[in-house]
Simulated scan of single mutants.
Amino acid sequence: MGVGMTLRRWLALLAAMLLGTLFGTTVTFKQALAEFEIQESQVEKGEVEVEYRGAVHWGFPGAEREEAEGGGDDDDDVVGALEEEEEGEFLRQSHDIELQWSVTDRWMFSTALSADEPLDEDFDLSTVEIELQYELIEREGDGLGLAFLGAYGFATRSGEVDEIEFGPIVEWESRPLLLTINPFLTSQVGDNRETDGLGFEYGWRAEYKVARRWGVGVEMFGEIEDLSHAGSFDDQEHSIGPTLFYNPGDDDDAVGGEGEDEDDEVAGPAEMEFVFNVGVQFGLTDMTSDTALKFQGALEF
């Protein structure tokens, strides 16, 4: 099957997903907290991955705090949380659990459960998401990797809306440096949505390999809820911070800019591997949580 035919089928599928959103849930939107995820482009047939992403947040985003304080809400939980934040004691957690399955050498399907703790509600499940990813250009060592992702998130709380997300996944490697970029467009779904146009979410990661299985880097995440009314930088959500990476399956000797020829590999059964990264995100605007400690771990087999 040619690349052109595959691309046409993928675009047709994405169009069907967009049309399907006309029948989605119609509720008020609130952003999930736990994402802090960088999607990778590579797909390997038969590979299954179970991934956990979690974060602990300090400091309420400005818009959320102002809404609670200005709304005259007398809820004891809200008042108590605001008081704890002022005293530097309040912590808020968020969690994602995702299952990925590479159906072919190009297609990958995944589903994820997200749970978080809004200011005025208890910790609970917030979103169920399904994703389809298609790998357009396979990255083999140094060079470019490119994939395309389409996702639909079903809101599970009353008062929230469904959301679609789509866009490219771009990787570029020049060992020992790996750059990954996720620029995604988003759209709220339903008659009660707060925005009429598209939104924009991004994440990028620059990882530098410092040892055979270890890397250090920086990650940045952000969101513009409505591109037609983007406002100033301070009116948007942006955060950045350092991250430490561990990948036991990375046997590449290209460390610190000194690469060596790769040894011949003997094909064999897939082995179970655990990879993880841990980092800190610092809010750059008042619309973002002040600080977040993030962890991502994945079991691959």
Rank of each mutant, 00 (worst) to 15 (best):
F184S: 01
G71A: 10
D124Q: 13
D261T: 07
E89Q: 13
E138T: 12
E138I: 08
W214T: 02
V3R: 14
Q133H: 03
F274V: 15
W107F: 09
H95D: 10
G256K: 01
T186V: 02
L33H: 02
H57I: 07
P176V: 03
G145F: 05
T127K: 05
E67W: 13
V170R: 05
R213G: 04
I169K: 02
E37S: 10
D124F: 10
G297P: 12
G190L: 11
E140I: 03
D96L: 06
E44G: 08
D96M: 08
E83T: 14
F166Q: 07
D162K: 02
E64C: 15
E135P: 01
T285I: 04
S114T: 02
E85I: 02
Q93W: 14
F154A: 09
G256Y: 00
M5S: 10
G143A: 02
Q100F: 13
V275M: 09
E69N: 06
L146I: 00
R53C: 06
I169R: 04
G141F: 00
N247E: 15
T288A: 07
L7Y: 01
L146W: 00
E140M: 02
V27S: 15
L227Y: 08
G150F: 01
L14K: 09
L299F: 12
R53H: 14
N247S: 15
R175W: 03
R175N: 07
T21K: 08
F148W: 06
K30H: 06
Q39V: 05
E194S: 12
L14G: 14
Y52P: 11
D75H: 08
F90Q: 13
E163F: 10
D96V: 06
L244A: 13
D76H: 09
L13F: 13
R106L: 03
R193L: 00
I164C: 11
D253L: 06
A34P: 13
L33C: 01
I137R: 09
A63Y: 04
E173S: 11
D77R: 08
E35H: 12
M272T: 15
S41E: 07
V255F: 06
E265P: 10
G54N: 02
G150L: 01
F282C: 11
V275L: 12
Q188F: 07
F90I: 01
N247V: 12
D235P: 04
G283M: 03
G279I: 06
L149Y: 04
K209P: 09
V255H: 04
E117A: 02
S228M: 13
D116T: 03
S41M: 00
S102Y: 01
E98F: 01
Y208G: 05
W172F: 10
F154V: 07
L198I: 08
Y246S: 10
T26F: 13
G143Y: 04
W172L: 10
D105N: 11
E40A: 09
W214Q: 02
F29W: 02
E165L: 06
E201A: 06
I164G: 11
G59C: 03
G190I: 10
